[in-house]
Design a protein around this nucleic acid. Structure first.
Lengths: 118, 118
DNA sequence: CTACTATTTTAGTTTAATCTAAATTACAAC
DNA sequence: GTTGTAATTTAGATTAAACTAAAATAGTAG
């Protein structure tokens, strides 16, 4: 029940952390996970999923021809909160970057709601 | 202040976790750390120390010809407790193993305080 | 300065992780 | 049975991490 040392190795890889983030709240099929990371093959994603599952960080369920994965928050212990904060921080940073981008395009346009596209 | 992603990679290696454990409570010189892990060269230890320092997990101080290292608990956030529990668990396991050994050598000798040596 | 000790750094090697492409399994629909 | 889609597994290649041995740096003591 206490997270073992293998957990540390499992979350060391940015790729696996990205997968973990994807299945953090929603249950996703292997294919859906792969679609979210197009720079890598399906096979590579599958291998990482196996590692995550071996470390107990995700669980899976087969339905029809699909297999659905989701994170096991409890297996991460205190690290779960840490990851969440990291991801939230990243979101915050992206927002900030977007605002900066907008202000560079024209200071007056800042904070205005975006329309269609332009 | 919030632990960054590099922290995860830093604690992924058993070698680095062992170093971290050594300098957890006590400040140790690089040489003392190396003596505690004789299966590896001094250079290798030094490289790992650099990584730990780069990740902010240890800090160092030079005095005379020595350099002393110690862990920065706060940089690990909630993971600090997790590591402590892990190490304590290991201690507990060692104790248990010792007791088992003792009981194998002779059940009556169990729980008796050890004298000199044998 | 030299000699000595502690530590770091460099360069090259070994070892382990990650990836790809292709083969394979599994299941559904026909 | 065959065909099609989803996912896994295998084998080999690429990439990155860890280690060693030797050279370099730093600081002490004479």
């Amino acid at each position: 029940m206490t997270p073992g040392p293998n957990v540390f190795a499992a979350i060391a890889s940015p790729r696996r952390r990205e997968i973990l983030r994807l299945v953090w709240r929603d249950e996703l099929s292997a294919g859906a996970i792969h679609q979210a990371m197009p720079d890598v093959t399906f096979g590579a994603v599958s291998l990482q999923l196996r590692q995550l599952e071996a470390a107990g960080l995700v669980e899976s369920r087969g339905e029809k021809q699909f297999r659905y994965y989701r994170a096991r928050h409890k297996a991460l212990g205190p690290v779960a909160r840490m990851l969440e904060r990291m991801w939230d921080d990243a979101l915050w940073r992206l927002k900030l970057a977007a605002e900066l981008e907008a202000s560079r395009r024209g200071p007056k346009a800042r904070k205005r709601k975006r329309r269609k596209s332009k």
